[in-house]
Each structure stands twice: as C-alpha cells, then as structure tokens.
C-alpha cells in the first residue's frame, strides 16, 4: 500500500479503508515511524478474530526491548482477520510495515473515530513535531 494514501491515528496506527461486500473494512498496521521508535521488537499479542473493538481502546500489545506498548484501534467494529504470520515473523513490521506488516482487519460498525484520523501530510507533520 502507498503510505501517502493511508489515514493515520495520533497513536501511530495506519488505516486503509475499503468497501467489501457492502461494508467498510479497515486494514490496520503501525507506521514505519512507530516501528523505528519502538526498536527491537520481541513479542506481539494479537486479538482473536470476532472480537469487538472500540475506537481509541487497546486491541493488542507489543513488546520491544524492555518496553510494552498498547496498540490502539483507530475505529470501532469487529476484528475479521488477524495477520497470524507476524507472531513468528515480527521483522515484517519493520521491513514492510504497509503491506506484509498489516496487523488486523476491522469490519467497521460506525464512523466513531474516523474524524480523528489524519491524512499523510498531517501525520508527517506530527512525526516531525515529535522528533523535534
């Protein structure tokens, strides 16, 4: 996926929205900036398919060298797919964060959280501010 065409949360998750069978499905991952900031990743705790998630709430956890961080759902809905390959290949998050590094797919149930997401230009500005 082209990072410039994605939406981003303040907590550094990216979102790709697509229509599938009349419903909106969001593919979610974490940005290259976030992966770099986390440094050496060692463990990823993923949710179960079928779990309901709420915009702004944690849907998983990731451990880098000695830090545990929450992953936040950018939107509200139901988890319909989980990238199981990541469990044994965490390096994909860093090597290919916008394609092979996708984490979950969410069937969006309402528009909660959508207005909080940024386009690529706004997200780049946020990253620049955080690096200042």
């Amino acid at each position: 996926m082209n990072p410039q065409e994605l939406l981003y949360a303040k907590t550094h998750e990216w979102v790709y929205l697509a229509e599938e069978g009349g419903t909106q499905v969001a593919t979610v991952g974490i940005s290259a900036f976030a992966v770099e900031a986390l440094t050496d990743l060692v463990y990823l705790d993923l949710p179960e398919v079928g779990r309901t998630v709420t915009a702004g709430e944690s849907f998983g956890e990731i451990e880098s060298v000695k830090a545990v961080s929450d992953l936040y759902s950018p939107l509200t809905g139901e988890i319909v797919a989980v990238n199981e390959e990541l469990r044994e290949a965490l390096e994909k998050l860093g090597e290919d964060p916008y394609d092979a590094g996708w984490i979950v797919k969410i069937k969006v149930s309402d528009q909660t959280g959508l207005d909080q997401l940024m386009d690529h230009a706004a997200y780049e500005k946020l990253c620049e501010e955080e690096q200042a």
Binding site: K66, S69, D70
Partner: peptide, 9 residues
C-alpha cells in the same frame, strides 16, 4: 542497574 517501561499513549 536495569529498568523497564510500560507505554500508554
């Protein structure tokens, strides 16, 4: 000396 973190937003 060693330390660990939990990050939340």
């Amino acid at each position: 000396v060693g330390s660990a973190q939990r990050r939340r937003k």
